[in-house]
C-alpha cells in the first residue's frame, strides 16, 4: 500500500470511529486505530454546568452590549455584569463574588473575571485588572486560612497557583506594551501593589503551621518578589526590559523584603 493510500485508509477508519461505526482497520493499521479509540475515549469530557451557564450568560450579555455600544468600557463591563446577574436565575453570579476555590460557584466568579478582561484590550488595563484579580486570590487565601483555623479542610494550593498565574499575566501584559506612554506610571503601580501583596503573603506564611502550605505561600512570595524586582529594574532602565530576569530569593524559607506600609488586601 502506498503512503498516500495508507493515509486515506487510516482516515476512513478514523471517520468510522468518530461516527461510532465499526472501525475495521485495514491490515497493519489496527494498532493505530486502537490507539485512536483509546485516545478518543480519554479525551471525552463535559463542560461543568456552572461554567456553561456563565459562558452562555456572557454571550447573551456581550450581544446586548454590541448592540448598545456604550461609550465607556467600564460602563460596558458594569452593564454586562448586571445583565449576567439577571440572566443567572437566583443571582448565582452575585453569590459567586464570595466563592472560594473548590466551591460550586467559583468557576462562575472566574468566568465573570474573564468577561471583564474581554472588554479591556490595551495591555495597561489588562495588567491592572490582573493585579486586581491577584489581590482577590490573596483575599481568598486569607479566608481559606481562616477556615482552616476553624477546623475545616481546605486546599490552598489552587489559590496560590491562581495567584501566581495572575502575576505572570501582569508581567506578560506589561511586556506587550513596552513603549506605552504610561509605562512608568504602570510599573510604579505594579511595584506598589506587589509590595502590598508581599506584606500580606509574608504575614500569612508566618501564621501557617503546615509546611506544605508554607511552601505554597513561599512560592507565591518568590513569584511576586521577582515580578516586583523586574518592574523596579525596568523603571530604572527607562522602560527597557531587563537583560536578565531577576531571580527569586535564593533561600526558600527566607523572608522576602516587604513594604510594611500596606498590611492588608481586605476591602
Amino acid at each position: 500500500m502506498t503512503e498516500a493510500r495508507e493515509h486515506d485508509a487510516l482516515d476512513a477508519a478514523l471517520g468510522r470511529l468518530v461516527r461510532g461505526e465499526s472501525a475495521q482497520a485495514p491490515e497493519g493499521l489496527d494498532p493505530l486505530v486502537q490507539t485512536a479509540r483509546a485516545a478518543r475515549e480519554a479525551f471525552a469530557t463535559e463542560v461543568p454546568d456552572a461554567v456553561a451557564r456563565a459562558h452562555i450568560a456572557a454571550l447573551t450579555g456581550a450581544a446586548t452590549l454590541e448592540r448598545k455600544r456604550p461609550r465607556h468600557r467600564v460602563a460596558m463591563v458594569l452593564i454586562a455584569a448586571a445583565i449576567t446577574t439577571l440572566l443567572l436565575a437566583g443571582g448565582a453570579m452575585a453569590a459567586s463574588a464570595g466563592a472560594l476555590p473548590g466551591q460550586l460557584l467559583y468557576p462562575v466568579k472566574r468566568a465573570v473575571e474573564k468577561i471583564d478582561l474581554a472588554f479591556h484590550r490595551d495591555p495597561a488595563s489588562r495588567a491592572r485588572l490582573h493585579l486586581e484579580f491577584a489581590e482577590r486570590r490573596l483575599n481568598e487565601l486569607t479566608t481559606l486560612l481562616e477556615l482552616r483555623k476553624a477546623g475545616q479542610s481546605v486546599d490552598i494550593g489552587a489559590a496560590m497557583s491562581a495567584y501566581q498565574s495572575e502575576i505572570s499575566q501582569v508581567q506578560s501584559a506589561v511586556a506587550e506594551d513596552p513603549f506605552g506612554a504610561s509605562l512608568q506610571a504602570l510599573l510604579s503601580h505594579v511595584q506598589d501593589e506587589l509590595a502590598g501583596h508581599l506584606a500580606v503573603l509574608a504575614q500569612l506564611r508566618d501564621s501557617v503551621v503546615p509546611q506544605q502550605a508554607r511552601d505554597a505561600i513561599q512560592n507565591a512570595i518568590d513569584r511576586a518578589e521577582t515580578a516586583r524586582a523586574n518592574a523596579l529594574q525596568r523603571r530604572v532602565n527607562g522602560g527597557q526590559p531587563a537583560d536578565t530576569p531577576t531571580s527569586p530569593p535564593s533561600s526558600p524559607g527566607g523572608r522576602p523584603s516587604v513594604n510594611p506600609g500596606k498590611s492588608s488586601t481586605h476591602h
Binding site: V47, H55, A62, A111, K114, I115, A118
Partner: peptide
C-alpha cells in the same frame, strides 16, 4: 483544565463578536 475552560468562553465570545 481551568485554562481550557477559560479559553472555551473566550472562543465563543470572539465568535459572537
Amino acid at each position: 483544565r481551568e485554562d481550557a475552560e477559560d479559553l472555551l468562553g473566550e472562543v465563543f465570545l470572539q465568535a459572537m463578536r
